[in-house]
Amino acid sequence: MTSPPTGRGPRPEHRRSLAAGLLIGMAVMAAADEIVFHQLLGWHHFYDRSTTGVGLLSDGLLHTAELLALVAGFFLCADLLRHGVLAAAHLRAGVFLGLGVFQVFDGIVDHKVLRVHQIRYGVDVTPYDWAWNLSGLVLLLIGSALTVRAARRDRTGPRR
């Protein structure tokens, strides 16, 4: 009851919508990585023995966190939706940001810094790394642009 409602209906919750999108985006990209690159293509290895202990631990934490994020994101979304306060533009922006954040993090920290596993084995991995990280960057940029646009739109017009 902090904001006495003057307009029609409750105000959309921008930050929560963005957070829900972020959680879902990161988890979806992680799931896509697991399904496409580990299972379908068989490029990533489940465990290559060059992985350090720290790498293994961070991978385990990240992997479990993604699972929890997926569930948390969807339930957060459902909660916003049932109270009619889901901001669709912010949710969309959050999803793209999440997709990009995971892709870039996976490409740089997991593959290169911690060397959890490589994108593909038995080939020159450099072009794959470039493609991987650039695609992540593109997603991140799209997400940022959408976030800025969503923020600007609700400053100029209260509708939506």
Binding site: F46, Y47, R49, T51, L56, L57, D59, G60, L61, H63, T64, A65, L67, L68
Partner: peptide, 18 residues
């Protein structure tokens, strides 16, 4: 608690793979 146990579980699983 779920996060910790889940993470340890997956670390153990990957270790067993090796």
């Amino acid at each position: 608690a779920v996060l910790t146990v889940g993470a340890t579980h997956s670390v153990l699983a990957k270790g067993l793979y090796g």
